[in-house]
Every structure is written in structure tokens, then in C-alpha cells.
Nucleic acid binder design. Structure first.
Lengths: 330, 330
DNA sequence: TTATTAAAAACAAACGTTTACATATTTATT
DNA sequence: AATAAATATGTAAACGTTTGTTTTTAATAA
């Protein structure tokens, strides 16, 4: 039925060990023998069984990716970066969606461990203590992208959200803004906390009072962005909305315009994820150009180093960002 | 080091076979014994090695997903549907991006076969003869979503694109349109051919001449949509643009508006994929509401039937669609 | 009781590789 | 030419499960 390494060995009149060596590029094979074995492999259309390989070698060349939602552009952009580098290093990726549910997150992790993945990448997520305990307990390398989990002391790739938001906020304060709101969108808690902290810091540096109302929360989707005005219309003057989700940002744009609020004079808008959407908004929206694809790519590269026991000089990588000022702000 | 089924057997004073039976819910175990084994499993924090399992049972509870680009909303929406149902049936999904490159597509397929996946889903893609040969040669169940590949005689899930486009086109012709263009966007060739055929059929039914120029091609992204006017501006009058890519549709919208072309009086626009983007366009765009998530979900359900050798009454599923007429058309 | 059958558990052989270790062959050294 | 060293190949034991077959134990019938 299925052709195995035995069949190849028999046909090539060598031992299975020699076939295995040819397969794995072991140099201790006479070129002549190598050639003969390769011919038989081709003739029989033999393909090694990766599962058997995995059992014998304890390496599966598979990595797990734990992700809140693959149909969210933010995460799928990260995932694409991951996957491209994984492919480059001959790894395949198993993807598990969690919807930010800690229970699903933990189950996915344990599932991946069962499957003996060589490494795991977390994209965002909640990463509670229990999961972190599991991570430490297993000895599978883990890299976190897009959520800095400094306390957990795990390798990670990020931009400096704190600094980015502080920079943007300072710019906005300087041009006369007084009330800057941050609209959370249920992305990674860690990440959004950094944004909050950056905003608070900016308030402090500008000697302006920070109020709790400045932090609001919406879902990640368009309609949630539109609806934000139903809630905020009662609040004091709003000069700027900063939001995490591009999709919600489009909603805010439309919601405001439908109410006759014009950008950037009556209201300013800043978006913090950097999906394709930012290029499609009218008016163009000021945003932090996070290198999503690169974060994924660098994260996977970092993981390959751990998986291959290569030395790592900096486990917590901070990639540069650019703030792109567009006409949604003054 | 790692705790195995042997350790559990020893601690529980039974044979490994019994532990295995408990693990797999085999009824031939005395309740008392079952309880004892389960306790030891819990106490030792034992987790079965899925790789060893896969080798012994020849089932990996893993399915492969071959996809052009996970960072494209169209495909990631399909993928999410797939993944949710896969999870429901306790399968994990390995995702491989191909960028519609037939070579990558074939390599991914062979890789997945090596990994002994229990089934494979193709989302879009090119699926050339060589790959189809490989599929037939392996005896792994394959389901195709979003590309009807009727000639290949493979199970599939789709909507009736031909009918949908004919319906839309007839509607547009009836309200006075003469020149309807279809802008391909490098999605699945099969799928776009059905759209072309539907359009041609509508031209025929309305006794209007079909010209080759009515079919154009752009990339799938925003800028490509904007740029389409650089090319088409020279052409004869255009009444309607139908495009496959929502992202390109946004580009067309903006490109037209920048040229002072207004919707729907001077130009009408129809988009055929049904990503989140359709809800974010201004003006709202007429489109075919393809149930992307459901196509993925139904596709995975279909695949589970094949993987579990359950009877399948209809291997080629056609799901219903709705045409949502919005203000980008008359 | 004893014989017969059914249920529960154990035994041992797969599954298809990798990889120490042992052995055979070739090449280099004196 | 003999020996040592290096290279090439073979042998067999893992890897951690599942599963068909056999044995033991328990339940039922005569």
C-alpha cells in the first residue's frame, strides 16, 4: 500500500539507516550510494511519513499559532508574516482561534503541546497566570507578538506603544486639544494598558487633568464604532478619539459625519492598528504605522532560533514605528 | 521526564492497553478501573502524545487548509468558518498560504500529505491538472470551497456565481445599463470564469453585443482599484463596474469620486466578495452577500463526513446567496 | 457444582522513522 | 605491507501509542 523506508532500502539494496541518512542529508554516504537511493526514492514516489519522523526524532517541524481571530485583519496580517518565515524555515503552522477566551486559549495551548509542536506563538490574547504556568511547565519555546507580557518574562516582539501614544498625544495637546479619549476595542489587555499609560503620561506632562471617562470601550467592529456617539454625545467636549481598531475607526468616521461633525476641526481621529483599512478611509486617518507583517516575521524568526538552540541576544524585540499624520488630525 | 502511558499503567496497576481504552472511551473497562486510571492520569498530569497516537492509529485529527492568502479578508472569513467547525469536531488546522502559485500549492499539498493529515480543504487556488492528479493519487479526502472545480469531480461548497451575476446583470440592463464591465481581481480562475459566463449570458439574453473589453483585470488591492480608471478612461462609456474584490471596490469608489464621477448616476458599482468591507463603503455598494463563513463551515462539516466515513448525499453543495441592492446602483 | 458465555484485562506486535553503536570498507601513514 | 584513521554501512533499539489476539475473571445457565 503505502511505500515506506523499508521498500526503498530493499530496492536500493542498502539498509534503512542509509536511506534515512540520504533523506536527512547526512554527509556520511558515498555519493554513488546517495545517487542510487535517490533514484529509487523517485521511482517509488516515496515520501517520508512526518508523523513517524516526529515520533522518532522528537521534532515535528510544526509550530502552533494561538490567535484571537484570524478573520480580523490585524491578526491575519501578523499571521501572514509568521507563516511566510515559518515556510522559509520549513515549518508548518497550526492555527487556533480563541476569541480572547482564556479557556479556549489554554485548551489550544494544551492541544498544541499534545501535538508536540516545536514552538508556539501567541498573537495578542489574554495570557492569564494559569496559561503562563502551563507555558513555563512545558519546555516548548514560546514567543509573544503584539502583547508585551513583561512580567511573564517571555520572548516577545512589539513596538513601543507607550511611547507612540505619548508622542501622538503630545502633538495633539500642542495643537490645542484638551480632551483626548481612548476607545479600547477588546484587543490585548496588556497592549491596551500600555496605550492607556502612554495617554495618562501625556496628560501629566501637559499638566492637564486625566479623567476616567477618557477611557471607553467598544467592540472591534464597524457598527460598534458608529454607536460610540450614542454614548459619548452626552459627555463633555471631545477633541480627539484614539482607537485601537481600524474597523471601529471607520465606523466612528461615518458616525461622526452623519451627525455633521467634521474632521479635523470639530473632532480629530487617530487609529492604532495598521491594517489595509487605513489606506481606505475618507478622510485619511492619522495612525501609528505598526509593522504588522514584520512583527509576525520577526517573531517567527525569533522562535526558530529557540527551536534550533541558536543564541538569542535580545529576547524582547522592539520594532520601530512611524506616526503617519493625515487629515483626520490638525 | 515526560510522563507516558507506561507510567500511568504502572501507577494504576493495570496494563497500558487498559489505560489506552480509558483514554479512548472504550466501553470494555470496569467503571471502578476507569475511575482509578482517570485519577492517576490527573495526578500525573498525563497528556497523550498525539504524534505517537497518529502513528499507531493512522489518524492525526489534523486537517490541512490550502489558501491563497490568509491576510485577505475574503479567505480569512472562509478560514474562520472552517476552523470553528474543525474545532467542534476536535480537529486542528494547518494553514498554508500559496499566493495562487501552483508550485507552492502543490508543495503545500505534498507537505500536508507527508504530515498525514486526515483531510484537506482548498480555498480558491488554481488547482492545475498536476495537483488534481496528486489528489486523486492520495486517498485523502479533499473538499474545495469557493472554487467549483466540476471537471475534477471533487466535493465542493459554493454559491451559484453564474446565476448571481446573471441576475444582477439583468437587473442592471433592465434599468438602462448598456456597458457592464467585469473587473477580475486574480481570485480563483474557475470562480471568475463562472462570473464571466454569467455576464456573457446576460448580454445574450438582453440582445446586447458582448465585447472582450468588458473583462478587465486588476490586482486585489485598493490602489489597483483606484488605478483602474487610468486604463478605462479611454474606453467607451462605462455604465457599470462589477468587481470581485471588495478592497479594489473601495479603490474604484474613491478613484471615481476623485474624478468627479458620481454614483449611481454616472457610474454604478457592484462588488462580489462579501467581506466586512461592504458595510464600510460610502456610498453603500450593491453586492452579492456570499455566506463566506458558512461556506467554510459547511465545507469543513462535509470533510468531517468523509474523514469519518459517514454517508454523503450531495458532494457538491450550493449555498443560497442574497443580492443586496444599495445606492451604488440605480 | 460445573460448564458455558460474556466481560475485563493483559500481552505483544505493529505503526515508520531516527540514531547510538557496531561492523565493514576505504584511505592515509609509516 | 601492515597498521591506524577515517569513512561508509548495517543492526537493532528506541519513540509512545493503538489494536488484534489471548488469557483471566466474572456472570449466567444447566
Amino acid at each position: 500500500m503505502t511505500v515506506t523506508i523499508y521498500d526503498v532500502a530493499r530496492e536500493a539494496k542498502v539498509s534503512m539507516a542509509t536511506v534515512s541518512r540520504v533523506l536527512n542529508g547526512n554527509p556520511n554516504v558515498k555519493p554513488e550510494t546517495r545517487k542510487k537511493v535517490k533514484e529509487v526514492i523517485k521511482r517509488l514516489n516515496y515520501r517520508p511519513n512526518a508523523v513517524a519522523r516526529g515520533l522518532a526524532s522528537k521534532k515535528t517541524t510544526t509550530v502552533g499559532v494561538i490567535i484571537p481571530d484570524i478573520s480580523n485583519l490585524y491578526y491575519s496580517s501578523l499571521a501572514r508574516g509568521l507563516d511566510d518565515i515559518a515556510e522559509m524555515y520549513n515549518y508548518q503552522t497550526i492555527i487556533a482561534n480563541t476569541d480572547n477566551d482564556p479557556v479556549k486559549e489554554r485548551n489550544s495551548f494544551l492541544n498544541l503541546i499534545s501535538k508536540q509542536v516545536d514552538g508556539i506563538v501567541f498573537l495578542g490574547g489574554t495570557l492569564n497566570d494559569e496559561t503562563i504556568e502551563d507555558i513555563k511547565g512545558s519546555n516548548v519555546p514560546v514567543v509573544i507578538c503584539g502583547t508585551s507580557e513583561k512580567d511573564a518574562n517571555l520572548p516577545s516582539v512589539n513596538i513601543d506603544y507607550f511611547k507612540a501614544i505619548k508622542e501622538i498625544s503630545n502633538h495633539l495637546f500642542e495643537s490645542g486639544a484638551k480632551n483626548i479619549f481612548f476607545i479600547k476595542a477588546l484587543y490585548s489587555q496588556q497592549l491596551e494598558r500600555h496605550i492607556e499609560d502612554g495617554l495618562k503620561e501625556a496628560y501629566k506632562e501637559n499638566n492637564l487633568p486625566f479623567k476616567e471617562e477618557y477611557i471607553q470601550e467598544v467592540a472591534t467592529h464597524y457598527q460598534a464604532g458608529r454607536d460610540v456617539f450614542d454614548r459619548l454625545i452626552d459627555e463633555e467636549n471631545i477633541d480627539v478619539l484614539i482607537t485601537m481598531s481600524d474597523e471601529a475607526a471607520v465606523g466612528m468616521l461615518h458616525g461622526a459625519m452623519d451627525r455633521g461633525i467634521s474632521f479635523p476641526n470639530k473632532l480629530q481621529l487617530v487609529s492604532c492598528s495598521n491594517t489595509h483599512l487605513v489606506h481606505m478611509m475618507r478622510p485619511p486617518v492619522t495612525s501609528i504605522a505598526i509593522p504588522l507583517y514584520d512583527i509576525g516575521a520577526v517573531g517567527m524568526r525569533l522562535l526558530t532560533k529557540y527551536m534550533k538552540d541558536e543564541p538569542v541576544d535580545e529576547p524582547n524585540v522592539i520594532l520601530p514605528y512611524i506616526i503617519e499624520y493625515r487629515s483626520s488630525t490638525k
